[in-house]
């Protein structure tokens, strides 16, 4: 039982990370209609710059604002120089341009930081484990990630539902042309949203630094899973990103943890292992295929 709860928490933590990435991506897609493959690059920028500052200063916490600012500034610059020219283009041009950005960012990181993975320090305060239930010790840092994700979720909820900017964001996700027609400074709104998405990606990148490895190409590793979350959740829907992110994180973790053991009841050990791993590797894609077959627009489609 304790194992199940622990795995649930693990799934939750992974899901929260996916949500942080997916929230920005889904907003960028929903409001500007841009498929941004370079979202993973912003995640990488956050991780590298944050780690660099943390290593130079010796403080994890100083790295945090650095990561956020670096990712956001990069995002805003990318928006102004490249993405802005893509709004009127079709998805194919966006795919090609943002793919080009991936190549460029990866190689810039090689030039600036070198090819080897770097070490992100763990904050002293959160390096231990906490006994959350009798007999269940859970790493504090992972709890911190979960908490961060939930705070961001609440913050985004308030921002989107309670502020004027949020209203425009909602309107933009539902009907882009309408907002434009109303005379809102759409360019500023776009830049804001893109910057916010980049900031969240940078946050995700830096926060995962101490548990994952910070290296060139780390953005592509999480990019596909993020897109899966965005599509399952429904394009443009932050609520969808949250539900799909958490759901996917939990399903993925649970499959990996329990499927091979479960299959042992039905087949030979070597087969169970092979099939179990195979299915869990395909798990998130299988899940997306199934969701889309029944709900072609995802769980919470924002477009009306």
């Amino acid at each position: 039982m304790i194992l199940v709860i622990e795995q649930l928490l693990n799934g939750l933590q992974y899901g929260v990370m996916l949500f942080l990435m997916a929230a920005g991506l889904t907003l960028i897609f929903g409001i500007m209609g841009v498929i941004n493959l370079a979202h993973g690059a912003l995640y990488m920028v956050g991780a590298f710059v944050g780690t660099w500052v943390a290593t130079e200063t010796g403080s994890f916490w100083l790295g945090l604002p650095a990561a956020l600012v670096a990712a956001m500034v990069t995002g805003v610059v990318v928006e102004a120089l490249v993405v802005r020219r893509l709004y009127a283009r079709d998805h194919l041009d966006q795919v090609l341009a943002t793919f080009a950005l991936i190549l460029i960012f990866n190689q810039l990181v090689v030039l600036i930081f070198g090819r080897q993975p770097v070490f992100t320090p763990m904050p002293e305060l959160f390096s231990g484990s906490l006994e959350i239930l009798p007999g269940l010790f859970y790493p504090m840092y992972r709890l911190l990630i979960i908490a961060t994700g939930l705070v961001v979720a609440i913050g985004l909820y308030l921002l989107i539902n309670r502020t004027r900017v949020g209203m425009l964001v909602r309107a933009g996700a539902t009907n882009r042309d309408m907002v434009r027609a109303l005379g809102v400074d759409i360019r500023l709104l776009y830049t804001l949203v893109f910057g916010l998405g980049a900031l969240l990606a940078g946050l995700a990148g830096y926060m995962t630094g101490p548990i994952l490895s910070v290296q060139v190409g780390m953005g592509e590793q999480i990019l596909l899973a993020t897109f899966v979350v965005v599509v399952i959740g429904g394009l443009g829907s932050v609520k969808g990103a949250l539900v799909a992110g958490l759901g996917l994180g939990i399903v993925d973790t649970m499959l990996r943890a329990f499927l091979p053991t479960l299959l042992l009841h039905f087949m030979e050990p070597s087969d169970a292992q092979a099939v179990g791993v195979g299915v869990s590797a395909m798990g998130i894609y299988l899940l997306m295929a199934i969701v889309l077959l029944f709900r072609p627009k995802g769980l919470f489609p924002a477009e009306g």
Binding site: F29, I35, H91, L224, F227, V228, V231, L235, M282, Y285, L286, M288, A289, L292, L293, P296, K297, G298
Partner: peptide, 18 residues
């Protein structure tokens, strides 16, 4: 082909990944 647009992009990607 039961889907379209971005969902089509993603679902074909999903099958290829599998």
């Amino acid at each position: 082909l039961r889907t379209g647009g971005v969902q089509f992009i993603m679902i074909t990607l999903a099958f290829a990944q599998m």
